[in-house]
Design a binder for these strands. Sequence first.
DNA 1: AAATCTAGCTTTGTCGGACAAACCGATAAG
DNA 2: CTTATCGGTTTGTCCGACAAAGCTAGATTT
Lengths: 254, 254
Amino acid sequence: MAATPLFRRIDVAPAYQKVADAIEREIINGRIKPGEPIGTEQQLVAQFGVNRSTVREGIRVLEEGGLIRRDSSRRLQACLPRYNKLATRLSRALILHEVTFRELFETSMTLEVASVEGAVERASEENIAELAANLERSAAVVGNPAELAELDAEFHVLMAKASQNRVLQLAREPAAQLFFPTTEMIVGGVPEGGARLVEAHGHILDAIRRRDKEAGVLWTRRHLQDWRRGFEKIASLDRSVEHTYMEHAYAARQ
Amino acid sequence: MAATPLFRRIDVAPAYQKVADAIEREIINGRIKPGEPIGTEQQLVAQFGVNRSTVREGIRVLEEGGLIRRDSSRRLQACLPRYNKLATRLSRALILHEVTFRELFETSMTLEVASVEGAVERASEENIAELAANLERSAAVVGNPAELAELDAEFHVLMAKASQNRVLQLAREPAAQLFFPTTEMIVGGVPEGGARLVEAHGHILDAIRRRDKEAGVLWTRRHLQDWRRGFEKIASLDRSVEHTYMEHAYAARQ
DNA sequence: AAATCTAGCTTTGTCGGACAAACCGATAAG
DNA sequence: CTTATCGGTTTGTCCGACAAAGCTAGATTT
């Protein structure tokens, strides 16, 4: 054993990670507010005393995490992570873990019911107006599965928004991203499927308007059970979320 | 206007992004299975025909997304995204959006009740054994708020696991990461708080064993209501998840 | 011969410098 | 006042290089 070096190797984290962590801390602690500029790469190089390549690797980490973005002119700025983008990562994880539609359905049922309960309790006039507008557009495309499916997904997003609970909004997003794209197949495959969907939405909105929680929950349950019946005509609930289906959700993520 | 270039600038995505997308596609489509090696940076340079710096930026993106990691010897390999790590990103987002404990509590109530219902229905012997082991350890540290809080968080993770629903497991994680770290403050601040917590866990486990859904839900509700009462002695539910508290959750994330 | 050591090759993390394209700002021209 | 032009910046990418750590395989020791 050679002369003991005596204290070394505490560094552990690579420099690019430290750069990312340092910037992240500033943002989380609120010293850099969303929308504020981070500075140019050159400035970061000067501040951290590392090479630009290293800074850039750190930036990529934060960018992927949704903490910073580049504005129109490509300058760096802090930003509020979009639920949507993060949820996409989670949806991807769910696919890789090969979850089944049964798991998806069960959890969505829980979360959508919670959404409607919150919406019945706390929906604002504006929330209700948005839902009403969505319903109107839905009624107009009742024969078009593709457009109707998109509006259905939006209806449920609006319902979560109307619950005024952002944690719930975020929690339902990953499952919803995988769940709702199937609507198109189902509505297209079941006669009167579109009409039933719009009818359910109508009753749900009505319940929210009347602050009638029981009715809201009842119709939300029916609505999802309808989905389930439709789905089971096409595939087994216990099959994993297929890669083929994944590609569908995937193409739409941009 | 000079001689029109006639078709250009479709490229849009920078090279490092394309590298990341290309590797991501291979993993999502299953052509590279979790655990399999991606190859060295040098090989990727050769395959994609770009510079190593560019490849490395792409790698950082995927690493942050949880799709690839470096094994003990720092070689790249595909991996299954850990819910935990992704949930950390979401928790961070929730903090930045300044959600309140009321939102957190409401959503956690929904998700924990769903967890216990699933656990009552589907918990395996192994799940029950894990919960029992946790309970035993909890009983032993009933006077130590820090350790008890950690075991409480674990109990709820195990309950979600016992529900055999991975979508639910994932959906509850972000809220749980913010919710449960407060347990320590609460248990420490309320006399008999530790004993009540362990008692509740005991009743919940008992209900799962007996497949008694009603009792399971009842005790889970009581357990969370206890948390709420304790919390309201310390702070207002309508205050946003404070930065100070955030730092607590933050330090523990590694 | 089996275990151990050592030297060399590989790979990663980091650095410095370079350049084209896009963008910004300000000035000059209509 | 609007439009065109010209530098100066900044980003995205490339090249080459090197120290530290890991791995491999031949050399050495027991």
